[in-house]
Nucleic acid binder design. Structure first.
Lengths: 187, 187
DNA sequence: GCCACCATGTAATCGGTTACATGATTAA
DNA sequence: TTAATCATGTAACCGATTACATGGTGGC
Protein backbone atom coordinates (compact mmCIF):
# COMPACT_ATOMS: atom_id res chain seq x y z
CA UNK A 1 0.00 0.00 0.00
CA UNK A 2 1.32 3.34 -1.11
CA UNK A 3 0.02 6.12 1.15
CA UNK A 4 -1.17 9.35 -0.44
CA UNK A 5 -2.07 12.69 1.10
CA UNK A 6 -5.45 11.40 2.23
CA UNK A 7 -3.72 8.62 4.15
CA UNK A 8 -1.61 11.12 6.03
CA UNK A 9 -4.54 13.34 6.87
CA UNK A 10 -6.33 10.35 8.34
CA UNK A 11 -3.26 9.19 10.28
CA UNK A 12 -2.65 12.72 11.49
CA UNK A 13 -6.22 13.27 12.62
CA UNK A 14 -6.13 9.99 14.54
CA UNK A 15 -2.96 11.24 16.20
CA UNK A 16 -4.59 14.56 17.08
CA UNK A 17 -7.43 12.80 18.84
CA UNK A 18 -10.10 11.76 16.34
CA UNK A 19 -11.23 8.16 16.78
CA UNK A 20 -13.91 7.41 14.19
CA UNK A 21 -14.40 8.28 10.55
CA UNK A 22 -17.07 10.67 11.65
CA UNK A 23 -14.76 12.46 14.06
CA UNK A 24 -12.07 12.74 11.39
CA UNK A 25 -14.54 14.33 9.02
CA UNK A 26 -15.67 16.73 11.72
CA UNK A 27 -12.16 17.69 12.78
CA UNK A 28 -11.06 18.35 9.22
CA UNK A 29 -14.19 20.42 8.62
CA UNK A 30 -13.79 22.63 11.67
CA UNK A 31 -10.03 22.97 11.96
CA UNK A 32 -8.28 22.15 8.69
CA UNK A 33 -10.86 23.21 6.17
CA UNK A 34 -9.00 26.34 5.10
CA UNK A 35 -6.01 24.37 3.81
CA UNK A 36 -7.46 20.91 3.29
CA UNK A 37 -10.78 19.21 2.58
CA UNK A 38 -11.91 15.63 2.86
CA UNK A 39 -15.33 14.03 2.45
CA UNK A 40 -16.65 10.97 4.21
CA UNK A 41 -16.64 9.13 0.89
CA UNK A 42 -12.85 9.28 0.99
CA UNK A 43 -12.43 8.65 4.69
CA UNK A 44 -14.16 5.33 5.25
CA UNK A 45 -12.43 3.37 2.46
CA UNK A 46 -9.14 4.96 3.49
CA UNK A 47 -9.58 3.73 7.05
CA UNK A 48 -9.99 0.21 5.71
CA UNK A 49 -6.89 0.49 3.54
CA UNK A 50 -4.82 1.82 6.43
CA UNK A 51 -5.99 -1.00 8.64
CA UNK A 52 -5.18 -3.58 5.99
CA UNK A 53 -1.69 -2.06 5.80
CA UNK A 54 -1.31 -2.36 9.56
CA UNK A 55 -0.97 1.38 10.14
CA UNK A 56 -4.10 1.66 12.24
CA UNK A 57 -6.25 -0.80 14.10
CA UNK A 58 -10.00 -0.61 14.50
CA UNK A 59 -12.53 -2.13 16.83
CA UNK A 60 -16.30 -1.98 16.74
CA UNK A 61 -17.68 -0.01 19.62
CA UNK A 62 -21.31 0.88 19.13
CA UNK A 63 -22.69 3.60 21.36
CA UNK A 64 -26.18 2.48 22.21
CA UNK A 65 -27.73 0.82 19.20
CA UNK A 66 -25.70 3.06 16.91
CA UNK A 67 -22.88 1.26 15.16
CA UNK A 68 -19.48 2.82 15.42
CA UNK A 69 -15.93 1.80 14.67
CA UNK A 70 -13.06 3.37 16.61
CA UNK A 71 -9.53 3.41 15.25
CA UNK A 72 -6.13 4.09 16.73
CA UNK A 73 -2.61 4.34 15.31
CA UNK A 74 -0.30 1.37 15.50
CA UNK A 75 3.43 1.92 16.12
CA UNK A 76 3.95 1.40 12.37
CA UNK A 77 1.32 4.05 11.66
CA UNK A 78 2.97 6.50 14.01
CA UNK A 79 6.32 5.84 12.31
CA UNK A 80 4.88 6.38 8.82
CA UNK A 81 3.29 9.64 9.96
CA UNK A 82 6.61 10.89 11.40
CA UNK A 83 8.56 9.89 8.31
CA UNK A 84 6.16 11.84 6.14
CA UNK A 85 6.38 14.88 8.44
CA UNK A 86 10.17 14.82 8.15
CA UNK A 87 10.64 13.91 4.50
CA UNK A 88 12.42 16.68 2.68
CA UNK A 89 10.33 16.52 -0.50
CA UNK A 90 8.65 19.68 -1.74
CA UNK A 91 5.19 19.75 -0.16
CA UNK A 92 2.40 19.83 -2.73
CA UNK A 93 0.24 22.94 -2.99
CA UNK A 94 -2.91 23.44 -4.97
CA UNK A 95 -4.55 26.78 -4.69
CA UNK A 96 -7.59 27.33 -6.87
CA UNK A 97 -9.26 30.60 -6.07
CA UNK A 98 -12.02 32.03 -8.22
CA UNK A 99 -11.81 35.28 -6.29
CA UNK A 100 -8.19 35.87 -7.26
CA UNK A 101 -8.98 34.72 -10.76
CA UNK A 102 -11.60 37.44 -11.05
CA UNK A 103 -9.14 39.95 -9.66
CA UNK A 104 -6.64 38.92 -12.33
CA UNK A 105 -9.20 39.59 -15.08
CA UNK A 106 -10.75 42.74 -13.61
CA UNK A 107 -9.43 44.87 -16.50
CA UNK A 108 -12.21 43.36 -18.61
CA UNK A 109 -14.78 45.32 -16.60
CA UNK A 110 -15.84 48.87 -17.24
CA UNK A 111 -14.19 51.49 -15.09
CA UNK A 112 -17.05 51.81 -12.61
CA UNK A 113 -17.13 48.09 -11.88
CA UNK A 114 -13.45 47.41 -11.87
CA UNK A 115 -12.96 47.48 -8.09
CA UNK A 116 -15.62 44.81 -7.57
CA UNK A 117 -13.38 41.72 -7.56
CA UNK A 118 -10.89 43.38 -5.20
CA UNK A 119 -13.67 44.33 -2.82
CA UNK A 120 -15.17 40.91 -2.89
CA UNK A 121 -11.82 39.30 -2.08
CA UNK A 122 -11.51 41.71 0.85
CA UNK A 123 -15.02 41.07 2.08
CA UNK A 124 -14.57 37.34 1.92
CA UNK A 125 -11.42 37.53 4.01
CA UNK A 126 -13.10 39.87 6.46
CA UNK A 127 -15.87 37.33 6.96
CA UNK A 128 -13.41 34.48 7.30
CA UNK A 129 -11.17 36.39 9.71
CA UNK A 130 -14.23 36.96 11.84
CA UNK A 131 -15.01 33.25 11.83
CA UNK A 132 -11.45 32.46 12.85
CA UNK A 133 -11.70 34.97 15.72
CA UNK A 134 -15.11 33.81 16.89
CA UNK A 135 -14.97 30.05 16.35
CA UNK A 136 -11.89 28.42 14.93
CA UNK A 137 -9.14 29.94 17.06
CA UNK A 138 -11.09 29.59 20.33
CA UNK A 139 -11.93 25.98 19.49
CA UNK A 140 -8.27 25.30 18.70
CA UNK A 141 -7.19 26.96 21.95
CA UNK A 142 -9.61 24.82 23.92
CA UNK A 143 -8.29 21.76 22.13
CA UNK A 144 -4.70 22.76 22.84
CA UNK A 145 -5.38 23.18 26.54
CA UNK A 146 -7.02 19.83 26.95
CA UNK A 147 -4.79 17.80 24.65
CA UNK A 148 -1.38 19.43 24.95
CA UNK A 149 -1.13 19.78 21.15
CA UNK A 150 0.10 23.21 20.14
CA UNK A 151 0.19 23.08 16.37
CA UNK A 152 -3.50 22.97 15.52
CA UNK A 153 -3.74 26.28 17.37
CA UNK A 154 -0.69 27.62 15.56
CA UNK A 155 -2.34 26.68 12.25
CA UNK A 156 -5.53 28.44 13.28
CA UNK A 157 -3.54 31.55 14.13
CA UNK A 158 -1.94 31.29 10.70
CA UNK A 159 -5.38 31.23 9.11
CA UNK A 160 -6.53 34.23 11.10
CA UNK A 161 -3.36 36.19 10.32
CA UNK A 162 -3.61 35.30 6.68
CA UNK A 163 -7.14 36.59 6.27
CA UNK A 164 -6.35 39.72 8.24
CA UNK A 165 -3.40 40.31 5.94
CA UNK A 166 -5.53 39.81 2.82
CA UNK A 167 -8.22 42.20 4.04
CA UNK A 168 -5.61 44.80 4.92
CA UNK A 169 -3.78 44.39 1.61
CA UNK A 170 -7.00 44.79 -0.36
CA UNK A 171 -7.96 47.93 1.56
CA UNK A 172 -4.59 49.48 0.84
CA UNK A 173 -4.84 48.55 -2.82
CA UNK A 174 -8.39 49.91 -3.09
CA UNK A 175 -7.19 53.22 -1.69
CA UNK A 176 -4.16 53.25 -3.98
CA UNK A 177 -6.31 52.60 -7.04
CA UNK A 178 -8.97 55.09 -6.00
CA UNK A 179 -6.26 57.71 -5.41
CA UNK A 180 -5.74 58.06 -9.12
CA UNK A 181 -3.18 55.30 -9.44
CA UNK A 182 -2.32 53.73 -12.82
CA UNK A 183 0.86 55.70 -12.19
CA UNK A 184 3.59 54.03 -10.14
CA UNK A 185 2.91 50.47 -9.07
CA UNK A 186 4.84 48.36 -6.53
CA UNK A 187 7.68 49.77 -4.45
CA UNK B 1 -23.23 24.90 -22.99
CA UNK B 2 -22.78 25.63 -19.32
CA UNK B 3 -19.46 27.38 -18.69
CA UNK B 4 -17.36 26.24 -15.74
CA UNK B 5 -14.28 27.79 -14.16
CA UNK B 6 -12.05 26.47 -16.92
CA UNK B 7 -14.19 28.26 -19.49
CA UNK B 8 -13.72 31.56 -17.71
CA UNK B 9 -9.97 31.12 -17.38
CA UNK B 10 -9.76 30.54 -21.11
CA UNK B 11 -12.01 33.49 -21.93
CA UNK B 12 -10.08 35.68 -19.52
CA UNK B 13 -6.70 34.70 -20.89
CA UNK B 14 -7.88 35.44 -24.41
CA UNK B 15 -8.99 38.85 -23.15
CA UNK B 16 -5.60 39.45 -21.52
CA UNK B 17 -3.81 38.79 -24.80
CA UNK B 18 -3.26 35.06 -25.27
CA UNK B 19 -4.24 33.89 -28.75
CA UNK B 20 -3.58 30.13 -28.98
CA UNK B 21 -4.03 27.20 -26.62
CA UNK B 22 -0.30 27.14 -26.21
CA UNK B 23 -0.19 30.81 -25.20
CA UNK B 24 -3.03 30.30 -22.70
CA UNK B 25 -1.15 27.44 -21.14
CA UNK B 26 2.00 29.52 -20.95
CA UNK B 27 0.27 32.59 -19.51
CA UNK B 28 -1.47 30.57 -16.84
CA UNK B 29 1.81 28.87 -15.98
CA UNK B 30 3.82 32.05 -15.60
CA UNK B 31 1.30 34.47 -14.18
CA UNK B 32 -1.64 32.68 -12.60
CA UNK B 33 -0.01 29.49 -11.38
CA UNK B 34 -0.06 30.48 -7.73
CA UNK B 35 -3.85 30.67 -7.59
CA UNK B 36 -4.88 28.58 -10.59
CA UNK B 37 -3.59 25.72 -12.74
CA UNK B 38 -4.62 24.38 -16.11
CA UNK B 39 -3.10 21.75 -18.35
CA UNK B 40 -3.16 21.62 -22.13
CA UNK B 41 -5.38 18.56 -21.92
CA UNK B 42 -8.11 20.79 -20.53
CA UNK B 43 -7.43 23.79 -22.73
CA UNK B 44 -7.79 22.44 -26.26
CA UNK B 45 -11.17 20.73 -25.83
CA UNK B 46 -12.38 23.78 -23.94
CA UNK B 47 -11.45 26.04 -26.86
CA UNK B 48 -13.57 23.87 -29.12
CA UNK B 49 -16.52 23.98 -26.76
CA UNK B 50 -16.30 27.75 -26.43
CA UNK B 51 -16.17 28.15 -30.18
CA UNK B 52 -19.18 25.87 -30.63
CA UNK B 53 -21.02 28.06 -28.13
CA UNK B 54 -20.11 31.17 -30.09
CA UNK B 55 -18.10 32.73 -27.28
CA UNK B 56 -14.83 32.71 -29.20
CA UNK B 57 -13.90 32.36 -32.83
CA UNK B 58 -10.82 30.61 -34.18
CA UNK B 59 -8.92 30.65 -37.40
CA UNK B 60 -6.03 28.46 -38.57
CA UNK B 61 -2.87 30.46 -38.89
CA UNK B 62 0.17 28.21 -39.20
CA UNK B 63 3.54 29.86 -38.60
CA UNK B 64 5.85 28.24 -41.12
CA UNK B 65 4.96 24.57 -41.45
CA UNK B 66 3.86 24.53 -37.83
CA UNK B 67 0.13 24.29 -37.43
CA UNK B 68 -1.49 26.82 -35.15
CA UNK B 69 -4.98 27.99 -34.37
CA UNK B 70 -5.58 31.50 -33.09
CA UNK B 71 -8.69 32.46 -31.17
CA UNK B 72 -10.34 35.69 -30.18
CA UNK B 73 -13.34 36.64 -28.07
CA UNK B 74 -16.66 37.36 -29.73
CA UNK B 75 -18.94 40.07 -28.31
CA UNK B 76 -20.96 37.27 -26.68
CA UNK B 77 -17.78 35.88 -25.12
CA UNK B 78 -16.82 39.28 -23.76
CA UNK B 79 -20.30 39.66 -22.30
CA UNK B 80 -20.21 36.24 -20.63
CA UNK B 81 -16.80 37.05 -19.14
CA UNK B 82 -18.09 40.35 -17.71
CA UNK B 83 -21.21 38.75 -16.29
CA UNK B 84 -19.11 36.19 -14.49
CA UNK B 85 -16.79 38.87 -13.14
CA UNK B 86 -19.76 40.75 -11.74
CA UNK B 87 -21.92 37.93 -10.48
CA UNK B 88 -22.37 38.15 -6.74
CA UNK B 89 -22.02 34.44 -6.01
CA UNK B 90 -19.47 33.32 -3.46
CA UNK B 91 -16.26 32.63 -5.39
CA UNK B 92 -15.02 29.05 -5.00
CA UNK B 93 -11.77 28.40 -3.17
CA UNK B 94 -9.82 25.21 -2.89
CA UNK B 95 -6.63 25.35 -0.96
CA UNK B 96 -4.81 22.06 -0.50
CA UNK B 97 -1.44 22.59 1.07
CA UNK B 98 0.68 19.70 2.30
CA UNK B 99 3.03 22.18 3.97
CA UNK B 100 0.29 23.57 6.21
CA UNK B 101 -0.98 20.03 6.78
CA UNK B 102 2.42 19.05 8.13
CA UNK B 103 2.45 22.15 10.30
CA UNK B 104 -0.93 21.15 11.71
CA UNK B 105 0.40 17.72 12.68
CA UNK B 106 3.85 18.81 13.90
CA UNK B 107 3.04 17.78 17.48
CA UNK B 108 3.54 14.19 16.36
CA UNK B 109 7.27 14.84 15.97
CA UNK B 110 9.84 14.63 18.72
CA UNK B 111 10.81 17.90 20.33
CA UNK B 112 14.01 18.36 18.30
CA UNK B 113 12.23 17.97 14.99
CA UNK B 114 9.08 19.85 15.76
CA UNK B 115 10.08 23.14 14.12
CA UNK B 116 10.77 21.40 10.80
CA UNK B 117 7.35 21.89 9.15
CA UNK B 118 7.24 25.55 10.18
CA UNK B 119 10.69 26.15 8.75
CA UNK B 120 9.88 24.40 5.55
CA UNK B 121 6.75 26.49 5.07
CA UNK B 122 8.88 29.59 5.63
CA UNK B 123 11.61 28.46 3.26
CA UNK B 124 9.14 27.64 0.55
CA UNK B 125 7.60 31.10 0.78
CA UNK B 126 11.05 32.69 0.81
CA UNK B 127 11.90 30.90 -2.42
CA UNK B 128 8.57 31.83 -3.97
CA UNK B 129 8.80 35.46 -2.87
CA UNK B 130 12.19 35.58 -4.55
CA UNK B 131 10.70 34.19 -7.76
CA UNK B 132 7.96 36.80 -7.64
CA UNK B 133 10.54 39.55 -7.18
CA UNK B 134 12.88 38.29 -9.88
CA UNK B 135 10.50 37.00 -12.54
CA UNK B 136 6.79 37.17 -12.03
CA UNK B 137 6.31 40.78 -10.92
CA UNK B 138 8.75 42.19 -13.52
CA UNK B 139 7.07 40.14 -16.26
CA UNK B 140 3.66 41.39 -15.11
CA UNK B 141 4.92 44.95 -15.04
CA UNK B 142 6.26 44.66 -18.57
CA UNK B 143 2.95 43.19 -19.65
CA UNK B 144 1.05 46.02 -17.95
CA UNK B 145 3.11 48.66 -19.69
CA UNK B 146 2.63 47.24 -23.13
CA UNK B 147 -1.00 46.15 -22.81
CA UNK B 148 -2.54 48.68 -20.46
CA UNK B 149 -3.88 45.91 -18.22
CA UNK B 150 -3.26 46.67 -14.56
CA UNK B 151 -4.76 43.72 -12.74
CA UNK B 152 -2.35 40.95 -13.70
CA UNK B 153 0.33 43.11 -12.08
CA UNK B 154 -1.86 43.71 -9.05
CA UNK B 155 -2.33 39.95 -8.73
CA UNK B 156 1.42 39.41 -8.95
CA UNK B 157 1.95 41.99 -6.22
CA UNK B 158 -0.61 40.11 -4.15
CA UNK B 159 1.38 36.90 -4.61
CA UNK B 160 4.61 38.60 -3.63
CA UNK B 161 3.04 40.23 -0.60
CA UNK B 162 1.44 36.99 0.44
CA UNK B 163 4.68 35.02 0.43
CA UNK B 164 6.52 37.81 2.20
CA UNK B 165 3.82 37.78 4.84
CA UNK B 166 4.05 33.99 5.26
CA UNK B 167 7.83 34.07 5.60
CA UNK B 168 7.62 36.87 8.13
CA UNK B 169 4.86 35.17 10.10
CA UNK B 170 6.80 31.91 10.27
CA UNK B 171 9.96 33.69 11.45
CA UNK B 172 8.03 35.37 14.22
CA UNK B 173 6.42 32.10 15.22
CA UNK B 174 9.75 30.26 15.17
CA UNK B 175 11.19 32.86 17.54
CA UNK B 176 8.13 32.73 19.76
CA UNK B 177 8.31 28.97 20.01
CA UNK B 178 12.07 28.93 20.51
CA UNK B 179 11.69 31.55 23.25
CA UNK B 180 10.22 28.98 25.58
CA UNK B 181 6.62 29.32 24.45
CA UNK B 182 3.99 26.68 25.32
CA UNK B 183 2.98 29.41 27.75
CA UNK B 184 0.65 32.12 26.44
CA UNK B 185 -0.40 31.76 22.82
CA UNK B 186 -2.16 34.28 20.59
CA UNK B 187 -2.87 37.87 21.70
C1' DG C 1 23.12 16.66 -34.69
C1' DC C 2 20.88 17.80 -30.54
C1' DC C 3 18.17 20.43 -27.41
C1' DA C 4 14.80 23.74 -26.24
C1' DC C 5 10.69 25.46 -27.55
C1' DC C 6 6.31 25.89 -30.34
C1' DA C 7 1.92 23.56 -30.96
C1' DT C 8 -1.84 20.19 -30.53
C1' DG C 9 -3.53 16.31 -29.30
C1' DT C 10 -5.11 10.86 -27.38
C1' DA C 11 -5.82 7.24 -23.78
C1' DA C 12 -5.96 5.65 -19.31
C1' DT C 13 -6.49 6.58 -14.85
C1' DC C 14 -7.39 8.72 -10.43
C1' DG C 15 -8.92 11.58 -6.91
C1' DG C 16 -12.83 13.86 -5.48
C1' DT C 17 -17.63 15.53 -5.49
C1' DT C 18 -22.76 14.96 -5.62
C1' DA C 19 -26.57 12.69 -4.61
C1' DC C 20 -28.58 9.41 -2.12
C1' DA C 21 -29.57 5.48 1.41
C1' DT C 22 -29.90 3.87 6.05
C1' DG C 23 -30.66 3.99 10.70
C1' DA C 24 -29.93 5.25 15.69
C1' DT C 25 -29.79 9.02 19.49
C1' DT C 26 -30.64 13.35 21.73
C1' DA C 27 -32.59 17.79 22.56
C1' DA C 28 -36.25 21.20 21.56
C1' DT D 1 -42.81 14.64 16.85
C1' DT D 2 -39.52 16.90 14.50
C1' DA D 3 -34.97 18.45 13.73
C1' DA D 4 -30.19 18.06 14.51
C1' DT D 5 -26.53 15.18 15.10
C1' DC D 6 -24.07 10.71 15.18
C1' DA D 7 -22.40 7.20 12.08
C1' DT D 8 -21.31 4.62 7.82
C1' DG D 9 -21.81 3.70 3.56
C1' DT D 10 -23.02 2.98 -2.27
C1' DA D 11 -23.35 4.54 -7.13
C1' DA D 12 -22.62 7.65 -10.69
C1' DC D 13 -20.12 11.05 -12.41
C1' DC D 14 -16.65 14.58 -13.49
C1' DG D 15 -12.69 17.24 -13.55
C1' DA D 16 -7.91 16.83 -13.66
C1' DT D 17 -3.49 14.56 -13.96
C1' DT D 18 -0.04 11.38 -16.08
C1' DA D 19 2.01 9.46 -19.72
C1' DC D 20 2.62 9.44 -24.23
C1' DA D 21 2.41 10.69 -29.45
C1' DT D 22 3.40 13.73 -33.21
C1' DG D 23 5.76 16.99 -35.72
C1' DG D 24 7.78 21.64 -36.99
C1' DT D 25 11.28 25.61 -35.88
C1' DG D 26 15.45 27.89 -34.27
C1' DG D 27 19.76 28.25 -31.94
C1' DC D 28 24.18 26.13 -30.28
Amino acid sequence: MKPNSTSYVVLGMLHVGARSGYEIKRLVAISARFFWTLSSVQIYPELKRLQAAGLIKGRDQPSGGRRRRLYSLTPAGRRVLREWLLDGSEPSVEWRDEGLLKLFFADALEEGDRLGPLQSVRERSERLAERFRAEIVPAARAGAEHSGHDYPLISARFGLGFHEWVAEWCSTMEREIAAGESAAPVG
